[in-house]
Nucleic acid binder design. Structure first.
Lengths: 225, 225
DNA sequence: AATTATTTTTAGATAAGCCTAAATTCTTAT
DNA sequence: ATAAGAATTTAGGCTTATCTAAAAATAATT
């Protein structure tokens, strides 16, 4: 039932998946090339190949999107990636900024049995260490409401449930400020000038975050109490 | 400090490692080709390449062996492979005949940190699910005496500590007879005709094994009691 | 609407890893 | 000691995934 793809083909599928996810229109050749740090020419080549295999719907000069089958495979990859990240953090004690590159390799290991047993071993987690949803074996996501911290009003309380970007520099910054998935964040005040926000973390420490940062912090609002 | 090798190069190193291990003389091109299911011509190509990188000592027409650095890398691979096999069996509940192919993939994941944390997570195991020694981070093996069951005399008791071959058919056969690492094996009698042996497993069940099978079962003798 | 700029595709090359067939070297047997 | 046989290497090609440079198509601007 599962086709055997090379790691490279899988990476292209994931790139298209991400591009499709974040823009709703067709993914452009350049977008994919940029994401994979490769040339536009290489992308075109691969699009022909994946199109041949019916994994993508590709219109010359106009862009590409995943077919149903391609989407299924990409979701399976996301599942693998996020399960491995969870394993690395929960079981091996890595911190969330270290796991991406390793999971990037582990996700290409071929064995459905392995993934499903890993899922079981981790007790069927619904979210990975960055707060992103982990698709179930049949490709279903458990979504939850997440709004940017920047959208909260003064006095509102929330819990951090995700981060928009996963780059090391950003995550290191969060670590330094003891900010992790699950911490409570109360809005103390907002600057009218630059929209920076004073936030109380875990009802303990107070920090100042820029508007840009606040947009990358995804929270769940707590009902006032 | 670590050179980045392709998975293919790593597989060649491992093949040479195994060949060197089991024959003491130089590994021949054909031996390696057979082991990797590839052509002799491909092996020659790769030997030139690995020789260039000083990972093997290669004499045209005469064979090849690992250099010190090649040996270090091969040992690290064996370590990874056996740790992953241990993980798959101990933590994910695979049985010993299922893990080889998956570990074969996992061993190529590049991250020293990962291997060392996995080692710690597994509580620094000294032997893998097949009873083979797992090299420590600095490449040291903890060897133990193992003799073939076929060498025991009537009346002697032993514990199974390893198997010579890892092929699925053999391991499946052992599973069917409830034979696993750790079981006790008492020699009841030996046939003078075909050297087959009647063995009492775990002081419970009695089975008949051929001489061939007995040669593949590695045991530790129990002092008579 | 035409021209410029940008994006994308095509064309032609390269490197890794593999193959088969032919040539070479080593081994063995007479 | 030499010829036959076996093993190994070389030569020449193939595929995948990549690249740069040139050509073609689309988008943007005046």
């Amino acid at each position: 039932m599962d086709i055997d793809l090379t790691a490279t083909e899988e990476n292209y599928l994931k790139a298209i998946y991400k591009a499709n996810e974040s823009s709703s229109s067709l993914a452009s050749t350049n977008t994919i090339a940029r994401y994979l740090s490769t040339s536009a020419a290489s992308v075109t080549d691969m699009m022909k190949k994946l199109s041949q295999k019916n994994l993508v719907i590709y219109q010359k000069y106009h862009g590409v999107k995943l077919s149903q089958e391609g989407s299924r495979l990409a979701t399976a990859l996301v599942r693998k990636h996020r399960l491995w990240e969870t394993f690395l953090v929960e079981k091996l004690g890595f911190s969330w900024e270290e796991v991406h590159d390793i999971a990037e390799q582990l996700e290409h290991v071929r064995s459905n049995e392995l993934v499903d047993r890993l899922d079981q071993f981790l007790d069927y987690p619904k979210y990975d260490p960055h707060g992103d949803p982990i698709p179930s074996a049949d490709g279903k996501f458990t979504l939850r409401e997440r709004i940017a911290l920047s959208n909260l009003s003064i006095g509102e309380s929330s819990i951090l449930v995700g981060v928009k970007h996963h780059d090391k520099v950003f995550l290191d910054y969060l670590n330094q400020n003891r900010i992790n998935i699950g911490v409570t964040m109360n809005i103390l005040s907002k600057s009218l000038y630059d929209h920076s926000i004073r936030v109380l973390i875990e009802n303990e420490t107070e920090i100042l975050v820029t508007d840009e940062t606040a947009k990358n912090l995804l929270v769940r609002k707590l009902s006032a109490d």
